[in-house]
């Protein structure tokens, strides 16, 4: 609304000692508009593969907005517009020929607030792999792994089939990658 502060992010200088650093995602000169309101002004960011990158800024400066551009979540908000380039493995995410569904399977996202689906704990964790068409055995395995990774397994293993509504933060497998090795999951 009144926030006029523009995105302060500059293109991160390539890490000096890690010369052959692989840039997984490269956002260049992104402008973003909610209708007439410009939320991002020429924002750029390079994200390295297999590294955790944190985006820090005051409330309302546009962090969430920026992240949502990476998997085109802004498509869902009518009247928004993004310009510039967001290269994922060299392909511009913002170009019209991007397969959005496939993109979102590549770029997982966890939201600021947890959104448990009206399903059992098991189904919540399994929904991502389920979408990807994994086999039952694979899914069973990944559910157990994920719950173990987050330290919830012992607590919930007896009630996996029960409603997850009370389970504010059951870890959902956000994408093919984030399940296995968190290669490009986004945590908002």
């Amino acid at each position: 609304m009144i926030a006029t502060a523009s995105m302060q992010t500059k293109v991160a200088p390539p890490p000096l000692r890690d010369v052959d650093a692989e840039i997984k995602l490269d956002a260049r000169h992104v402008d973003f508009f909610y209708g007439d309101f410009q939320a991002l002004h020429d924002a750029s960011l390079a994200v390295q593969a297999r590294k955790i990158t944190a985006l820090i800024g005051p409330s309302g400066c546009g962090k969430t907005t920026f992240l949502r551009v990476f998997n085109r979540m802004h498509d869902l908000v009518p009247g928004t517009r993004a310009s510039g380039e967001v290269l994922l493995d060299g392909h511009n995410v913002l170009s019209p020929d991007t397969d959005v569904i496939n993109l979102r399977r590549q770029v997982g996202m966890l939201f600021q607030r947890a959104n448990p689906f009206p399903k059992s704990i098991y189904d919540n964790v399994a929904y991502g792999p389920h979408i990807l068409g994994w086999s039952k055995i694979q899914i069973d395995q990944v559910v157990e792994e994920s719950l173990k990774d987050t330290g919830l397994w012992d607590e919930v293993k007896d009630r996996l089939r029960r409603s997850a509504r009370r389970w504010i933060r059951s870890p959902r497998c956000a994408s093919r990658n984030s399940c296995k090795n968190s290669r490009s999951g986004i945590r908002s």
């Binding site: 979540m73 869902l76 569904i101 979102r104 399977r105 997982g108 607030r113 959104n115 689906f117 979408i131």
Partner: peptide, 17 residues
């Protein structure tokens, strides 16, 4: 809540699913 739709879509699920 819309966030539930976004949560689903963010996993790469098609709209109808």
């Amino acid at each position: 809540p819309n966030s539930l739709r976004e949560a689903g879509l963010a996993l790469g699920a098609p709209r109808w699913r």
